[in-house]
Amino acid sequence: MGILQRITRNIDNRYWDPGLIGFPVKNSYTAGVAGQRFFEEIKENGRIFGSKCAGCDLTYVPARIYCERCLSGLEEKDWVDVGDEGTVYAYTEVHQTKSGEAKEKPSLIAAVKIADGLLIHRLGDCLPEAVHIGMPVKAEFKPKNERQGGIEDIKYFKPF
């Protein structure tokens, strides 16, 4: 077959399936300098921290070690307890799993605004029809002995 001839039916084209060897690789991510401290506060004390750039008057949540606007380093003194409450900045009702199959029960995902930051998380204890943009929400933490130092230490955000 030459370059100008075409396979017009997909089914005629063969594909090669790796079969025996898939690609079973994994990732293991550190939380970073800021992330380590951010999750330590959640795990040990149930507190959410941001870091504030005084020059740009911005409080990042989750806390970071630098301001993305001016690239100043943000240090210990710039860390602020931003409380465990925020507002729904945007939300969506999810009907499919990540591989595209129908979920048994739809779930609610929200961007929760805390200080100048947005945390993407689940909404819980909340009916889909009740959610609205601007709705005040509060973090529901897992019991302390179940917390592992990750974003899942917050079970979800719920209205209050």
Partner: peptide
Amino acid sequence: RALETPKELSFQATK
């Protein structure tokens, strides 16, 4: 193995 995330490593070198 660094504690820093890729962003944080980039920041440190850039700064």
